[in-house]
Lab assay of single mutants.
Amino acid sequence: EADPRLIESLSQMLSMGFSDEGGWLTRLLQTKNYDIGAALDTIQY
């Protein structure tokens, strides 16, 4: 079963217009401990 923190973070990022095609966003959020800010910083640079 998916981590509730992942579901919450992923749904927030999907609502911002990101896609999780191929699961890349799920993996990114997992490596950033479900921190949306850290994930966005990684995507920006």
Score class of each variant (00 low, 15 high):
S15W: 06
D20K: 02
S19H: 12
L40T: 04
G17H: 02
K32M: 13
L6D: 02
D3H: 08
A38M: 10
E8D: 11
N33Y: 07
L25D: 00
Q12R: 13
L28H: 02
W24G: 03
L40Y: 07
N33K: 09
L40C: 06
F18I: 05
G22L: 07
I43Y: 04
D41P: 02
L6V: 05
E8P: 08
E21I: 11
I43H: 02
Q30E: 12
E1V: 13
M16A: 04
G23L: 08
S9V: 10
I43K: 01
E8S: 12
L14T: 08
Q30M: 14
A2E: 11
K32T: 13
E8F: 13
D3Q: 05
S11I: 11
Y45P: 10
L14W: 06
L29H: 01
L40D: 02
L28S: 00
L29W: 02
L6N: 02
L10D: 00
Y45V: 14
L25N: 00
N33F: 09
T31N: 13
D20R: 00
A39W: 04
L10P: 00
I43W: 05
Q44N: 13
S11C: 11
M16T: 02
L14D: 03
T42H: 15
G23R: 04
G37H: 12
L10Q: 01
R5P: 04
L6R: 04
P4T: 11
L14Y: 10
M16W: 11
R27C: 09
L28F: 04
K32C: 14
M16N: 03
A38H: 07
L25S: 00
M13S: 01
A38P: 03
G22I: 04
S15C: 10
K32R: 08
S11M: 11
S11P: 02
L6M: 08
M13G: 01
R5C: 07
Q12C: 13
D41H: 14
N33G: 11
L29T: 00
R27L: 11
T31Q: 15
T31L: 15
M16I: 06
I36E: 00
Q12N: 08
Y34H: 04
A2F: 12
S19V: 11
Q12T: 13
D35Q: 06
Y45A: 15
L29P: 00
M16L: 11
Y34L: 04
E8N: 11
D35N: 12
P4E: 11
Q12S: 10
T26S: 12
R27M: 09
N33Q: 10
K32E: 07
N33V: 07
L6P: 03
W24I: 05
Y45C: 14
D3G: 06
R5T: 05
D35I: 06
E21A: 11
D20A: 03
E21T: 11
A2N: 13
T31K: 13
A39Y: 03
Q44S: 10
R5G: 06
I36T: 06
E21V: 12
P4W: 12
D35V: 06
M13V: 03
A38E: 10
Q44M: 14
S15Q: 12
P4K: 12
E1H: 12
Q30H: 11
D35P: 01
A39R: 00
Y34G: 05
D41A: 15
D20S: 02
L28Q: 00
R27Q: 09
D3M: 05
M13D: 00
Y45Q: 15
D20C: 04
G17V: 02
Q44F: 15
T42W: 15
Y34P: 00
L10M: 08
G23H: 08
I36A: 04
S11F: 14
T26Q: 06
S11D: 09
E8I: 12
A38N: 06
L29R: 00
D3T: 06
T42L: 11
T26W: 04
W24T: 04
T26V: 06
S11K: 13
A2I: 13
I7Q: 14
I43M: 07
L10T: 01
I7T: 13
T42S: 12
D3S: 07
I36N: 01
F18S: 00
S9K: 06
G37P: 11
Y34E: 01
R5N: 07
S15V: 10
G23W: 05
R27Y: 09
T31W: 14
Q30K: 14
L6T: 03
D41Y: 14
S15K: 14
A39C: 08
W24C: 07
A2P: 13
G37E: 13
M16Y: 09
D20T: 02
Q12K: 15
L6E: 05
L28N: 00
R27W: 08
E8G: 08
E1L: 12
E1I: 13
R27E: 08
D35C: 08
R5W: 06
E21F: 09
L40Q: 03
I7L: 13
L28K: 00
L28Y: 03
M13N: 00
S15T: 10
Y34I: 02
L10H: 02
F18D: 01
S19Q: 10
M16Q: 04
T31S: 15
L25V: 06
G37F: 14
S19D: 13
G37S: 14
Y45E: 15
L28M: 04
D3P: 07
Q44P: 06
E8V: 12
L14Q: 08
R5I: 06
G37D: 14
K32G: 05
Y34N: 06
G37W: 15
D20Q: 03
A38C: 07
G17A: 02
I36L: 08
A39F: 04
Y34D: 00
Q44V: 11
I36Q: 03
A38T: 07
G17N: 03
L40E: 02
L14H: 07
E1W: 12
S9Q: 05
L25H: 00
Q44A: 11
S19G: 09
Y34M: 05
R27T: 09
Y34K: 02
T31V: 12
A39V: 15
D41C: 15
L6A: 07
G22V: 03
I7R: 12
S15L: 11
S19M: 09
D35F: 04
G17Q: 01
E1A: 12
Y45I: 15
L25K: 00
L28E: 00
L10G: 01
L29I: 05
L25R: 01
L28R: 00
G37Y: 14
Y34F: 10
L29F: 02
G37T: 14
I43C: 09
G17P: 01
D3L: 06
Q30G: 07
G23C: 07
Q44Y: 15
S15I: 11
L10I: 08
F18M: 05
Y45D: 14
L40P: 00
Y34Q: 02
F18R: 00
L10R: 06
E1M: 12
I7G: 09
M13L: 10
F18K: 01
I36P: 03
P4C: 09
E21G: 07
E1K: 11
M13R: 01
L25P: 00
E1P: 13
Q44I: 13
G23T: 03
D41Q: 14
L29V: 02
Y34S: 03
N33I: 05
G22W: 06
F18N: 00
A39N: 01
L40S: 03
G22D: 12
Q12L: 13
W24E: 04
L6Y: 08
D20F: 03
P4N: 10
G23N: 06
T31R: 15
G23D: 04
Y34R: 01
Y45H: 15
N33C: 10
W24D: 04
D41R: 15
Q30V: 15
E21W: 08
D20L: 03
D3N: 10
S19T: 14
S11A: 14
S9F: 10
T26F: 03
S9T: 11
S9L: 08
G22T: 08
Y45G: 15
F18E: 01
W24F: 07
I7A: 12
F18G: 01
K32H: 12
T42E: 15
G17K: 03
R27K: 11
L40G: 02
L29Q: 00
E21K: 10
G23A: 05
I43F: 05
T26L: 05
L25E: 00
E21N: 11
Q44L: 15
N33T: 05
T26R: 08
S15R: 14
I7D: 08
W24S: 04
G22M: 08
K32D: 02
R5S: 06
K32W: 09
T31H: 13
G37N: 15
Q12A: 14
L25M: 04
W24V: 05
I43D: 02
L10E: 00
L14E: 08
E1D: 13
T31E: 14
M16G: 02
L14M: 11
L40W: 07
P4H: 11
S11V: 11
S15A: 13
A39S: 06
L40K: 04
E1T: 13
L28V: 06
D35Y: 04
T31A: 15
E8T: 11
D3I: 06
L14R: 10
Q30A: 09
T42M: 11
D35L: 05
D3F: 06
Q44D: 10
P4L: 11
L14P: 00
G23I: 02
D3A: 05
A39H: 01
E8Q: 11
E8C: 10
Q30N: 08
P4A: 12
D41M: 15
L29G: 00
R27H: 09
P4S: 11
D41G: 08
A2M: 14
S9N: 04
K32V: 15
E8W: 14
A38G: 06
G17W: 03
M13W: 03
L10W: 03
G22N: 11
A2S: 12
T31P: 01
E1R: 10
W24L: 05
Y45M: 15
G23P: 01
E1N: 12
Q30R: 13
D20G: 02
